[in-house]
Structures are given as structure tokens and as C-alpha cells.
């Protein structure tokens, strides 16, 4: 199989805190790869590492065979035009209308005339169902609509890959359904490669072609959604079934209750 992104034995830490301890993962071309894990595990950080916004301590991340962190700034910016990222908040520019937001990458990176841009923007908005909202300002949009508008912006330049950062977080069932459908359809129609970072288990199991589960600074499970569901790892099962206690403990590490209350030294 052909891989678009290859994370090879990567270690990353923030200050003194180790976030990733030698993780490896590969993202197959044209597929939807999901990255799941408990919150606070640094899933967004992973996307920023792939996008070249952060540098790993050791190891390497390649995009289409080229190392992201070894390329020049110019080459990195050129590569970023081929990837796109949907931020959790949408990250629309609040001082521009939806139309101008979607037109933004086109105006920055192409010399298309305004009439061509208008057509492209209308098509992109149509594909996320927001052509009627072109004149609205981001503050007037609901959370789900803002994310769809941001998605239209993310596909404006027809990238090779889209990274979704928690696309389902805080969505009602309808917008969740819309987003699931959009991610699948856009991936297949535009021949994209998608990376979806999330902790919404049910949605992911329905759309992802391949799944990685991260916990405890490393990859604890990977496979197709069937393989993941059949996994015999206790940690993976705890995560899938949402058990409160298990290998990931309910209690944040602390001194024992008796010593905390009674002042006994352990």
C-alpha cells in the first residue's frame, strides 16, 4: 500500500513532560485514518507535528516521502499547500464573511480572477451545504456550521490531505451525522487522504478505514475497525467501552487517602 504520511519512531516532549515516546504510524493514501485516545494525550500535538508547526525531539515525520522537519521553510510552506487542517474551533477569520474566508487561500496562493474565485467558492460551499450562508459572518454561525464553513475553506485549494482535529466534539446528533457524511464523501469524491483525531468511538468505527489508538505516550492498538473491536488489549477495550476504571486509572496519581487525611507517612 502507498503511504502519504509516515511517522517514524518519533519522540516529543513539552518542557519536561514527555508526550510521545517513540511512536510510529503510517497513513495510507486515499483512506481515512483515525487517531483515537483519551483527552490530554496530545492528539492535536500530533497533527501539529505532522503539519510542521512543532519539531519532534527524535525521529522523523515524512509527507509524500519527504521529511517535514528537514525541509527548508520555503519547501515546508509549499508542502503545506498540499495539506489542510480543520481546527476544532473552525478557526475562521472573524473579521471576514464566510465567502471571504473560503476565498482567502485562493486569493493568497493563486492569481485567479474574482469571477473564477466566486465560482470555486460557491462550489466549495455547495459541497458542505452552506452556499446560502456565504454572506454571513462567522459570529452568526452555529458551531456545526462554522466547522463546515472551515471545511469548505480547507478544501478550497484541493489539498492531498486533510487533518481533522476533533471534528465531532460538542456537536448535536444532526451536525455530527452531517460531518461524518461530509468527511467520508469528501474523502472519496476528492480522492483525499484524511486523518481524523477524535475520541468519539462510534463515529470513528463507522467511517475510519484504519485506526490508531494512543495512550500512555505510545500506540496501544491499531488496525481496521473490526480488528480494533476484536482487540484483546485491556486498555483498548476500556477505551472502546468507556469504562471509568481500568488500565487508565480513575484517580489521578496521588498519595494514599489515609496518609493524606491522617498525616501518616507511607
Amino acid at each position: 500500500m502507498d503511504y502519504l504520511v509516515d511517522v517514524n519512531n518519533m519522540t516529543f516532549s513539552r518542557g519536561d513532560r514527555l508526550i510521545y515516546d517513540g511512536i510510529s504510524m503510517r497513513v495510507p493514501k486515499g483512506k481515512i485514518t483515525a487517531v483515537m485516545g483519551p483527552s490530554g494525550i496530545g492528539k492535536t500535538t500530533l497533527l501539529k507535528l505532522i503539519g510542521g508547526q512543532l519539531e519532534p525531539d527524535h525521529g522523523d515525520v515524512t509527507f509524500a516521502g519527504e521529511s517535514i522537519h528537514k525541509m527548508s521553510r520555503k519547501a515546508l510552506y509549499k508542502t503545506r499547500r498540499r495539506m489542510s487542517m480543520l481546527f476544532q474551533s473552525g478557526a475562521l477569520f472573524t473579521d471576514m464573511s464566510v465567502y471571504d474566508n473560503v476565498a482567502f487561500p485562493l486569493r493568497e496562493h493563486t492569481n485567479l480572477s474574482e469571477s473564477v474565485i466566486a465560482t470555486v467558492v460557491a462550489l466549495k460551499l455547495q459541497s458542505v451545504g452552506l452556499r446560502g450562508a456565504a454572506k454571513m459572518m462567522p459570529s452568526e454561525l452555529s458551531g456545526g456550521m462554522a466547522r463546515r464553513a472551515a471545511l469548505a475553506r480547507a478544501i478550497a485549494l484541493d489539498p492531498d490531505m486533510i487533518m481533522y482535529d476533533e471534528p465531532f466534539a460538542g456537536q448535536d446528533p444532526i451536525s455530527m451525522g452531517v460531518l461524518v457524511k461530509l468527511i467520508r464523501e469528501l474523502n472519496d469524491a476528492l480522492n483525499l487522504t484524511s486523518i481524523v483525531v477524535t475520541h468519539d468511538v462510534t463515529e470513528v468505527l463507522t467511517i475510519a478505514d484504519y485506526i490508531y489508538i494512543l495512550a500512555d505516550k505510545r500506540v496501544i492498538g491499531e488496525g481496521t475497525s473490526q480488528q480494533i473491536q476484536d482487540s484483546d488489549s485491556e486498555l483498548v477495550q476500556q477505551f472502546l467501552q468507556g469504562k471509568a476504571d481500568g488500565p487508565v486509572p480513575f484517580h489521578y496519581p496521588a498519595e494514599s487517602l489515609s496518609s493524606a487525611f491522617l498525616g501518616e507517612s507511607d
Binding site: 503539519g51 508547526q53 499547500r81 495539506m83 481546527f87 476544532q88 478557526a91 493568497e108
Partner: peptide
């Protein structure tokens, strides 16, 4: 805070310049 600077970077637009 609203990730607009990050998203500019990911759109290959240098926030310093823009």
C-alpha cells in the same frame, strides 16, 4: 487563542507577514 494564527500557518500563509 482561536487558532487563527495556526490555521494561517497551515494554509501556508506566514502570520508574521500577513
Amino acid at each position: 487563542a482561536t487558532e487563527q494564527l495556526s490555521s494561517l500557518e497551515m494554509m501556508a500563509v506566514d502570520p508574521l507577514r500577513r
